[in-house]
Amino acid sequence: MSESQFNGPTAGTPLTDEAAAQADLAARLAAAEAERDRLRDELDARSNESVDSWLEVVGTESRILGQMHGTVSWRITKPLRFVRKVQLKAAQVGVARVSQLAVADLRRRFIGRRR
């Protein structure tokens, strides 16, 4: 809000009335601003709360997912996942080229693990 709109005194109006009116306006303005801040804080609090609850739900889900990795079904599929990991690793080493030493190393470890 610009000053001129509200504070421009009109000619012929008694000075005292004008001061009173201004004081009143300022008070009302302050009240409105306080109310606005209060509403904003309330909205902020609500919005912060919803972000927090998102965090909490994500945290809980993550924990369940993490614990699932310890459950039976996950353990049963573990050998499969291990083979996949070795394949991927072998792939990396393969692309890495002539990697005779690394491949030999992998093979030793892979076969060693199966025994």
């Binding site: 927090d52 965090l55 909490e56 945290g59 924990r63 369940i64 614990q67 459950t71």
Partner: peptide, 22 residues
């Protein structure tokens, strides 16, 4: 571990996560 136990572990550190996100 059974499915029933899944929810019983330690509390989520809500203020910590909140602070980290901020």
């Amino acid at each position: 571990m059974s499915w029933a136990e899944l929810d019983q572990s330690e509390e989520i550190d809500r203020p910590g996560l909140s602070q980290a996100l901020l």
